[in-house]
Simulated scan of single mutants.
Amino acid sequence: MAQEVRGVIAPGKGEPVRVETIVVPDPGPGEAVVRIQACGVCHTDLHYKQGGISDEFPFLLGHEAAGVVESVGEGVTDVAPGDFVILNWRAVCGQCRACLRGRPWFCFDTRNAEQRMTLAGSGRKLSAALGIGAFAEKTLVAAGQCTKVDPAVAPQVAGLLGCGVMAGIGAAINTGGVGRGDSVAVIGCGGVGAAAIVGSHLAGAAKIIAIDIDERKLETARTMGATHTVNAKEIDPVEATRELTGGFGADVVIEAVGRPETYKQAFHARDLAGTVVLVGVPTPEMKLELPLLDVFGRGGALKSSWYGDCLPSRDFPLLIDLHLHGRLPLEKFVTETIQLDEVESAFQRMHHGDVLRSVVML
């Protein structure tokens, strides 16, 4: 039987979000209903609200979530009611050319729920942010979007792996291939950049250079494992990175801003045969221009990192285990916990750089 629950809706471009009653249908084949316990406030949700991703309003926001499976539809075998799960927005299909070649983290046909949640009363269909819509007491997702993890973990930290923290850690470990003794520079030290620093530290990098224009973020970066910090308002970040790496540049440079200016800095701050990883999300109108001879002559690799090139079924349980054993400080990412009706104010604090992550508790 369909259920009515509260959820945070973005009604139109740039309009304030509001809490509305939404209808969650019973799960159909391959679907699951999840009772949400915690959901992080991510920049992607702000992009949805601002119309920067699509114009398919109204949106049911929220996607960095953890909760408990309440019910499942026909044919679901990987999860069952009562399982504690992290939600992901890359439910692999297992049948596309990437999956069949043993590279499911590149899956080209990821799955979402077939049914749509709706607004109570009007019946208007909602577009769930990243196919999840977890600023709600319950949500409907494809069962493959549910990844079981150890229920001993606190939901407010577990849910962060559902997007930003996984994107940053994965950019360092999965995409950038950071290894023991490497030098790493991270440009942009918000939530994703801070996670890239944590991932680099976890991988055994010898030197981790945090670059930002906000001293508050640089101070946080130091607590996350950065060995050096550079305020790009005061010092040229390319020259500073070279100076800190014997004049050569970093082995891996992770760009977590998503702007042409900072990407060029990343390109020139890497060592010969070094790697640049773009994990910051650019806007559609942005263009990049680089001398082609420099692209050729410097060698190495220029990569983009989509969701940290993660495989949720592999990476989420591993990272949760590392956290529970004290090796991955996920709790440092949680600046504050809030309620559903505080999401709009949380967006303002995030926009001004006042928080690393606000987490909605339900």
Rank of each mutant, 00 (worst) to 15 (best):
L126W: 02
G144N: 14
I132S: 02
M117F: 05
S122D: 02
K148S: 06
D78P: 09
E137H: 02
G123D: 12
D150F: 10
G82D: 01
P155S: 07
D83M: 07
L130W: 00
L126K: 15
A154G: 07
P58W: 13
C93W: 01
P151G: 09
A143N: 10
K148A: 12
R101I: 08
R101N: 14
L119I: 08
E114H: 13
E56P: 05
V85L: 05
G62M: 11
A113T: 04
F106D: 12
R116E: 15
G67D: 01
W105D: 11
L130T: 10
F135V: 07
Q115G: 03
Q156P: 03
T147E: 05
A120G: 00
N88P: 04
C107M: 04
V85R: 11
G75A: 14
A91G: 09
L100W: 01
C146S: 13
F106K: 13
S127M: 13
A142D: 11
Q145I: 08
G123N: 11
V141M: 10
N112T: 15
D55L: 14
G75M: 08
L119N: 10
E74K: 14
V72F: 09
R97Y: 09
L61G: 05
A142P: 07
G144A: 15
L60F: 12
A152C: 06
D109K: 15
C96V: 11
A80Y: 12
S71K: 15
C107D: 03
P104F: 13
E74G: 02
V153Q: 05
I86V: 12
